[in-house]
């Protein structure tokens, strides 16, 4: 991906620099509010006691797992159809973040499962689908870096992301189908029938905070990708202009 094809890296860098402090500040604020409300203000659950507070991390993380994958699929479609180079970079920057949220959802789900079910892991339909989603993320990340030419990796990963996105609902359906046949409703559902407003507000604050945090990471990671591409271009220019291979850094 040559630098001259970036719609305008300079403009993106300036925009990113302007947005960074705001997204960062708002993310800290929203997550702070969410944590305070969730850990201290919200009431303990009458059945689950204090352990219900894991929900304020677990549920938004699980939402993010799907949200980020959707973002990757959209970015991949944009990159394949309109060949917009920033979309490629956005997809590349997103997948480790999404994988981390998915992993967080799995770990918190497991931690929550211990007091609830007495074991760390239960083949619950939701946990299982999230696990498969985690594998999809890992495949995306592995394919992205599997080629000598980074551009080929990004394009291949874009196709994979779209294929995966089409498959996510099918996988979800099949796992639900499998679960209902194997474990007929003996598992306690993770979410209660209705949710009390005192529990809803911290949940929403955390969800907004996680999304802002994602945007923050996205901006930083795209910025560093652009800088890296520029460094590589500078390195090549130094290689071709100097008679002997000269050190890139000056």
């Amino acid at each position: 991906m040559p630098l001259h094809r970036f719609a305008n890296p300079g403009r993106f860098m300036r925009l990113a620099d302007r947005l960074l402090p705001w997204t960062g500040g708002l993310a800290v604020l929203a997550i702070g509010i969410g944590l305070v409300l969730g850990l201290f203000v919200a009431p303990p659950d009458y059945q689950q006691g204090e352990s219900v507070r894991i929900m304020y991390v677990h549920v938004p993380a699980a939402w993010m797992a799907l949200f980020v994958y959707t973002c990757i699929a959209v970015a991949s479609a944009v990159s394949l159809i309109w060949r917009h180079p920033l979309a490629d970079l956005a997809a590349k920057a997103s997948s480790p973040v999404g994988a981390a949220f998915t992993f967080l959802a799995l770990v918190t789900g497991s931690l929550w499962g211990k007091p609830m079910w007495g074991t760390w892991w239960v083949w619950d339909a939701r946990l299982t689908s999230v696990l498969v989603l985690f594998f999809l993320y890992l495949g995306h990340m592995a394919l992205m870096t599997a080629f000598e030419d980074p551009a080929r990796g990004r394009k291949a990963a874009a196709v994979l992301a779209l294929v995966g996105f089409v498959n996510v609902p099918i996988i979800k359906f099949s796992v639900d189908w499998w679960n209902t046949l194997h474990q007929p409703s003996s598992v306690l559902r993770l979410d209660g029938p209705s949710i009390h407003p005192d529990m809803l507000w911290p949940l929403l604050a955390m969800a907004v905070g996680f999304k802002l945090y994602y945007v923050l990471l996205l901006l930083i990671r795209i910025k560093s990708e652009l800088i890296e591409a520029r460094l590589r271009a500078l390195g090549r220019a130094a290689m071709t202009s100097a008679p002997a291979p000269a050190p890139v850094a000056q």
């Binding site: 498969v132 594998f135 999809l136 890992l138 495949g139 592995a142 394919l143 599997a146 994979l160 294929v163 995966g164 498959n167 099918i170 996988i171 359906f173 099949s174 796992v175 189908w177 499998w178």
Partner: peptide, 17 residues
């Protein structure tokens, strides 16, 4: 090594049904 990583998650529905 990459092919199984990409393909196996997509095989889940076929396996289940």
């Amino acid at each position: 090594v990459l092919v199984p990583l990409l393909v196996l998650p997509l095989y889940v529905p076929v396996l289940i049904f």
